[in-house]
Design a protein around this nucleic acid. Structure first.
Ligand code: NAD
Ligand code: NAD
Lengths: 209, 209
DNA sequence: ATTAACTTGTGAATAATTTCACAAAGTCCG
DNA sequence: CGGACTTTGTGAAATTATTCACAAGTTAAT
């Protein structure tokens, strides 16, 4: 096993492998090689093996990896062998789409509370989930053991919401607002920033002509 | 100027600087230092300067960068000094949120066509935009000079849609389906993969206890 | 005019990550 | 069994990206 620090990027690829394995398992496949695992995502087999080697020796020379065994191990490593409770703040267009998306809970990420600060939204219900006032965040985070927060409010309110989340004990913030947030150490942050993706496109598109 | 290849990551940071500059300009600020520019995004000033140096010398020693001038130059570099036409495929929950989001067109990315393959959706209208059959994609891409495509269909149909897009002449595909796509060389791809973000969280969360 | 304080731009050093190369082990088949 | 083929795991090398260190230009105050 490789005891060096695990590259940040390796963890993200582990998610890709895990998803791939779930598909293979559903198809009844028993064995898979590092080449097959990386193929559809264009990840070289040697990268796949390096990534896995950070966590152990899961394969068998000559035949590859057991789909079932490796899937199990990866889910364990990624911490998705259990459910995680998620708070959504911002009951707008995006929040609604995220809330009603069944993919999350299927993966074990359950949006167990929704918050907003607009009087027009608070106390309305979405499929039986009451939209709570942002003031109730702290209490609810503790009560429902919420560790992940999703920020789906306009940029102007995003930092404030993230601050509240971290103060309430949320340890990981997924931010959709087009704004970089500051979070205290001990709190993780990830940004889904469509402007960056699109501008990355336009940069390269501009160079084509 | 630095003629070495521009790191992929530098381009993404350029977007962050450009957004920051837009804010500063709106606030009436005239000058900004590399330190200020990176600060809110926790990017070291030396990284900011390196990133900018790939494209020229925009600053003035002692006083920093002109907000207006640098903003202009970055928008030019990023290709956002013009509008880009975007096709959205998948008129579901997510597609609807994306379509109705005013932030895109404000940034110059205009969703000028929406496609779906469900008879229940095709020929319905969203705010005056007719949802077209996916069969019309190729024609419309040519007619409306569309260079960017957004995939917002279930994973099962995502590859097929991406294939259509690339065949139709779309050069950049932004994929929201939880599935890695294969695109031909000459076509760019970016993935917004919430499962990866969340599983990245759960990996680190699991290690906390 | 001099000094102190800033700030940029950039080569060099460092760090992080990916790719290569290959030994060792397992499989398959006649 | 023996030989051809497959596949893993892993140091070493190569590549890519970040950070350091500092010369050189700029500003501002007295
Ligand atoms: N809709 C999209 O497709 C899309 C795409 C990319 C990014 N985003 C970003 O996601 C965020 C949400 O977008 P949206 O389209 O859902 O916006 P929206 O305006 O539809 O909804 C925002 C919601 O947040 C609530 N809110 C505002 N400030 C709040 C606060 N301080 N505390 C609690 N609630 C607050 C509002 O009441 C509203 O219900 C925005 O930052 C937007 O830029 C959205
Ligand atoms: N909704 C979310 O918040 C969310 C979050 C993360 C990821 N996603 C992903 O985004 C994608 C869309 O999600 P959604 O919630 O909007 O799903 P949805 O089921 O609401 O909508 C999907 C739409 O795509 C259409 N469609 C299906 N196959 C098609 C094809 N081959 N060609 C054209 N149109 C086709 C369907 O008719 C439907 O209108 C999915 O891949 C989903 O996993 C969604």
């Amino acid at each position: 096993m490789n005891f060096k620090k695990v590259p940040l990027t390796a963890i993200r690829r582990l998610s890709i492998y895990a998803r791939m394995l779930a598909g293979l398992e559903a198809d009844g496949k028993q064995q898979v090689s590092s080449r097959d695992l990386g193929e559809t995502a264009s990840i070289p087999s040697t990268q796949v093996r390096k990534d896995l080697a950070y966590f152990g020796q899961f394969g068998k020379r000559g035949s590859g990896y057991s789909v079932k065994e490796l899937g199990f191990r990866l889910r364990k490593i990624l911490g998705i062998d259990r459910a995680w409770n998620v708070a959504l703040v911002g009951a707008g267009n995006l929040g609604r789409a995220l809330f009603s998306y069944p993919g999350f809970s299927k993966q074990g990420f359950r949006i167990v509370a929704v918050f907003d600060n607009s009087p027009g939204k608070v106390n309305k219900s979405w499929k039986g989930t009451r939209i709570q006032s942002i003031k109730e965040l702290s209490k609810t985070v503790r009560e429902k053991n919420i560790s992940i927060g999703i920020v789906a409010v306009p940029a102007s309110g995003a930092q404030e919401v993230a601050d509240e989340m971290c103060k309430a004990g949320i340890k990981a913030v997924l931010n959709f607002a087009p704004k970089r947030l500051k979070v205290p150490t001990g709190c993780m942050q990830a940004n889904v920033d469509l402007a960056i993706e699109l501008e990355n496109f336009s940069y390269y598109l501009s160079k084509l002509r």
